[in-house]
Simulated scan of single mutants.
Amino acid sequence: MLVEPPRDRLAGIGDEAGADLATQIDAVQRLGWSAIELRTVDGAHLADLDDRHFDAVHRAVRDAGLDVVCLASRIGNWARPITAPFDDDLRELDVLAQRCAALGTRFVRIMSYPNDGLEEPEWRDRVLDRLSRLAARATAHDVVLLHENCAGWAGEDADRMLRLVAEVGGPALRLLFDTGNGIAHGYDSYAVLRRILPHVAHVHVKDAVGTPGSATYVLPGDGRSRVVDCLRLLHAAGYSGALSIEPHLGTRPHEGVVATSAERFVQAGHRLERLLRVAALPPAPADSTATPAT
């Protein structure tokens, strides 16, 4: 029996398709999806757009009939180590909270601050302090921070992610799981997902081969990230949040690479749909980790 993927929960980070909003919207609509995740428009981060530019973004997304599932911020990310000015993150959260309200989403993606020469205990304490203060501010704004398994103190370690949830905790901090980050950062993403699954409120889908420092991104299912196994685990747990593609096939912000065509983004979306059909079925008895040829 063919199991159709949950199309109303499928989305993509728009600037992975192209820099301008028209390209981003068109790519999502070509997939027949009804949702988008926003990060940058015309090369500018959403929090840096002036009100006039943001109003145009809001109108375009609304007129296209798209829901916005999350705003991907720079808070605590690979470009903002723990020694970076905290005021930058507070200002960004304040702006994005207002824009969340306009766009109809409560989710803001964050990370947990790369180290910058500190001893681990001081790094940890500073991270927990900053995220606690951000979570309190998020509560006041009625938004939810989604910590991604990427850069920062808790980016690669399930125990640290769980400590964030326990110590910062509350309804204002949940976890964002990205299927493909483990290859680039040197850990087993699937093993992490098994540990953090009850706290996952949003999912990014990508895949990769290679090693830390030399990862190559590929279509979902073609790499070593066990994407199908991750999707199957999420399905079995009753995960009902968004699945948002961030394929890094054309756009890779940490490398300063911007997509010149939306074709690979669209291919990644179609591939996700196919993998979701596989993930909804029981695993093959001979090899539960194999991804069927697509």
Rank of each mutant, 00 (worst) to 15 (best):
A242K: 03
E156V: 09
S214R: 04
I110P: 00
A286P: 05
D229P: 00
A84K: 13
E119C: 03
H254C: 02
A268G: 05
A35N: 13
I75V: 13
I183F: 11
L164M: 15
G213Y: 05
T83V: 12
M161N: 11
D229M: 03
R194M: 11
L93G: 08
G238Q: 00
R124A: 12
L103E: 10
T260M: 00
R126F: 11
L128P: 05
V266Q: 02
R133A: 12
R62V: 13
V61K: 01
R99I: 08
I25M: 11
G14V: 01
G223L: 04
V266Y: 04
K206F: 08
V192K: 07
R274Q: 12
V266R: 02
L118R: 03
L249N: 04
R80G: 00
D159C: 13
A138P: 07
L145Q: 07
H58D: 14
M111K: 00
I82D: 07
A166Q: 15
A60Y: 02
S189H: 10
G223K: 01
G14E: 02
R124C: 04
D26P: 08
A60N: 05
S132W: 03
V258P: 00
L118C: 02
W78F: 13
A136T: 10
L234P: 00
R109F: 11
R133V: 08
V68Y: 12
H235F: 06
D159S: 14
H270L: 10
R126C: 09
L21E: 00
E148D: 15
V278W: 09
E156Q: 13
A97P: 12
T105D: 05
C100D: 04
L38Q: 08
V228W: 00
A172L: 11
S189A: 15
G65V: 06
I196D: 08
A97Y: 09
L176S: 10
I245T: 05
G65Y: 14
G65Q: 13
T294H: 15
K206T: 12
Q98L: 12
E4G: 01
V143A: 10
S112V: 08
D88Q: 11
G104W: 08
W33N: 12
F265W: 01
E156L: 10
V3T: 04
V168K: 02
D67E: 14
R91Q: 10
